[in-house]
Every structure is written in C-alpha cells, then in structure tokens.
C-alpha cells in the first residue's frame, strides 16, 4: 500500500502548478471568484452612486458650496408638477403593461402555429423595431404625427372623415404617442420571450385537450396561458420597471419640455430639475422616491401573482 499512495500524491502534486491557482480553484473559493466581477461592478457602479444619491437628496449641491438642508428637497417634491409626472408615468405603465403582455401572447401563439405561412418573415419584421434607435424612430414618429393636414396620421384620419389632430399638444394624444412608440418598439422582444415559453408547453397537454373536445379558444385559455404563467410574470415585471424609468419615448417627441407637461415623466423630471435647472439635490430626492415606488409596486405585483409562493 505504502508505495502506491506516495506515487498518487506525487501525481497530484505535479498537476498543481502553484498554490494560488489551487486556492482559487478550490471548491469553496471558486464561486466567489466567479461572482467577483459582478460584485465589484455592482458596488462601484450601482451601490456607491445609490448611496451618494441618497446623501445628495438631503443637500443643496452647488459648485463649491454643498450644504445639508434636511428634508427641504422632499418637502418641495409635493408640488403639482411632480404629481403630473407621477400621473403620466403611472398611466403609461398601466397601458404599456396591458398592451405589451396581452398582444405579444396572442401574436406569439399565431407565430407558433403550424398553419401560418411566411412565419420567419413575420417574426423578423416584428422584431426589427427593437433594433432601431429610439431617437431615429422618434424622428419618424414625429413626422408621421405632425400637426399638418398632410402628415400620415392625419391623412388616415381624413380618409375616415375625422378632422386633423394636433397630436403632440393634447394630453390624451400625447400619451397615445408615447404608448404607441413603446409598444411598437418592445413588441418583438416580448414575442420572443413568449415564443420561447411556448416551446416548453408539452404537446401531450394539447392532445389531452383534443381528446376532451376542447376548441382552439378553450385550448388557449386552459392550456397555453397557464403554461406561460412564469413568462407572463417575467414580462410584466420588466414592463413595469421599464415603464417607471421611461425617459426616451417622451424625450424624442418633446425634448426636455412638453406643452402643459403632457409628456413629463418622473425620470424626465429628474433630468429637468437635476441637470437642466442645476438642482442635483432635488433631482436626487426625486430619484430616491422613484426607487421606492418601483420597489413597492414590484413587490406588490410579484406577491399578487404568487411569485413568492413555494409550490
């Protein structure tokens, strides 16, 4: 026994070039090595700015003169402009979540159907908007929805005998534009999630439904939808979060200022106050409140759909 053991240890020793590598690749340490890049970038790029922003929200930040002003920034937050921004953002979130969950599910089912011809063409064309720059898309949308009678959207309305609309000046039409741009842009991505989800729905379930005599609509509601529940939760969660942090869709239509603040979002308000008006402390306070709102809404939503339950 003795000699054989010694050759074994020898062989093992030869395979280990250094103690450091051995340490790093040991079972206990390796996981930490792998997560280090993420942890470092999280600490530097997320946690540090977050704490800094939190501190800043209690300050008046001016070049060379930074003073603590207690809750002043938060007190000033209770103003009609902020309420307007919050309202706009909430309405936007509501509509984008409804549209960007319901429509992609239906479209994904169609795209997954064996009966549909030119499937790849439709898949590709629905996905392409996600690849375009929102700035470029915004320019095109702004032209389509111009105020003149000859803008595309007003031409279409004219065809149905409806008089032209000042799209970018009304609060309802303004919201419509933002939701439309977002829906157009993210539809393809969400379809992709649902298509992936559909590949996991077992054929046996459909066969069983067939045997029970279910029609296509019943199959959709009783087989497809329940199977897609995890994807629905995921898509609605990211839609809510993206909705609350929306900025570009408003920016491309109105830049920093929209008439009557119809396009002002919470993030837009941070930009306006913090950067354009040189009031970083106030901007930071808005950011902190927005963070709390997103956190609470997300928790409620996940709780509501039962994402925390162990089943």
């Amino acid at each position: 026994m003795e000699p054989s053991t010694s050759t074994d240890t020898q062989r093992v020793r030869n395979k280990r070039p250094s103690k450091l590598t051995a340490f790093l690749t040991s079972r206990k340490i390796a996981p930490y090595v792998f997560v280090t890049p993420f942890v470092i970038s999280f600490l530097l790029l997320f946690l540090y700015p977050m704490i800094q922003a939190f501190v800043m929200s209690f300050q008046q930040v001016l070049p060379g003169q930074t003073t603590f002003i207690g809750f002043d920034n938060y007190e000033r937050l209770l103003n009609p402009t902020f309420y307007r921004a919050l309202l706009n953002t909430s309405v936007y979130v509501l509509f984008t979540v409804l549209i960007l969950v319901a429509a992609p599910v239906v479209l994904a089912v169609f795209l997954n159907s064996k009966l549909l011809k030119f499937k790849n063409f439709f898949r590709a064309s629905l996905f392409v908007p996600a690849l375009t720059s929102v700035i470029v898309a915004g320019v095109i949308f702004r032209m389509m929805f111009g105020e003149s009678d000859s803008a595309v959207a007003n031409e279409v309305l004219g065809f149905f005998g409806i008089s032209p609309i000042d799209w970018r000046y009304g609060s309802v039409s303004g919201m419509f534009l933002m939701v439309l741009l977002a829906s157009w842009r993210w539809m393809g991505v969400n379809i992709l999630y649902f298509l992936a989800g559909l590949q996991n729905v077992s054929d046996e379930l459909y066969e069983a439904a067939d045997i029970d005599g279910a029609n296509p609509i019943q199959k959709f509601f009783y087989v497809t939808l329940p199977s897609l529940k995890p994807v629905v939760i995921f898509v609605s969660t990211i839609s809510i979060i993206n909705g609350f942090r929306m900025f570009e869709e408003s920016f491309v239509f109105w830049q920093a200022n929209s008439p009557g603040n119809i396009g002002l979002t919470v993030v837009g308000y941070i930009y306006q106050e913090g950067i354009s008006q040189n009031d970083m402390g106030f901007g930071a306070a808005i950011g902190v409140v927005l963070m709390l709102i997103i956190f609470i809404v997300s928790i409620i939503q996940l709780k509501f759909v039962g994402a925390f339950k162990e089943d």
Partner: peptide, 10 residues
C-alpha cells in the same frame, strides 16, 4: 430583478 433594474436608474 426589480432590484437590479432599480439600481440602473440612479
């Protein structure tokens, strides 16, 4: 997920 995204909007 929300926590990751939240941090992104600071």
């Amino acid at each position: 997920v929300p926590i990751l995204f939240i941090t992104g909007c600071g």
